[in-house]
């Protein structure tokens, strides 16, 4: 998933009150920032690849595992419990959003078995080929477009822009 992550992260922020026991308001700046940062955190594994510190095969390994999500939540919990629960939800939703890719995710790292729903072929971790290749396939349009439609409905229900 590429652009769809924007809609998914925003949709997660719309559930902030339910996920945090009312500590954070839906679509508030805090909810959006926490959701976005947590949601994008796994994809920062491309930075060491760009810097040539890690191999291409580093992408979608530790950063896309449940142990990573648990560590992030444990780090955030002493700072703010709301951030921890919202961040954990965002990370798990990120994994679900990436699972339709053929490359699969090693959710149970260090056990290296990869789990995939295999709806679209993986096109690499970054770059124009990855982007273009993603949108040459049907299921990415269906699911990512669906995420934006879902976000529209959530915005309507929560009466935020464009429904103010």
């Amino acid at each position: 998933m590429q652009l769809g992550h924007v809609a998914v992260a925003l949709a997660v922020s719309s559930y902030a009150p339910e996920l945090t026991g009312g500590r954070i308001e839906a679509f508030s700046a805090e909810a959006i920032i926490v959701s976005f940062v947590a949601h994008w955190l796994p994809n920062l594994d491309v930075i060491p690849i760009w810097l040539k510190i890690a191999k291409d095969s580093f992408h979608c390994t530790w950063s896309h595992s449940l142990i990573f999500a648990a560590v992030v939540a444990l780090i955030l919990a002493p700072i703010n419990v709301g951030w921890a629960t919202l961040g954990l939800a965002s990370l798990i939703i990120h994994f679900l959003a990436d699972m339709p890719s053929s490359v699969g995710l090693p959710l149970l790292m260090p056990w290296k078995r990869r789990f995939t729903i295999n709806l679209w072929a993986d096109t690499g971790h970054s770059g124009w080929v990855a982007f273009k290749g993603t949108y040459m396939q049907a299921w990415t349009w269906l699911l990512e477009g669906g995420a934006f439609v879902f976000l529209f409905v959530r915005a309507y229900q929560k009466q935020v822009w464009p429904f103010v």
Binding site: K55, D56, S57, H59, S102, V103, W120, A121, D122, T123, G124, H125, A130, G133, M136, Q137, A138, W139, T140, W141, L142, L143, E144, G145, G146, F148, V149
Partner: peptide
Amino acid sequence: FPGMGVAMLFDPYAQKAREEFLKINFYEE
């Protein structure tokens, strides 16, 4: 956009693109 996804399920070019990308391993050294 999701309509496009459904329509592409019936488009042989989209299916062919998927099959071509499945042949490539972007993570091999």
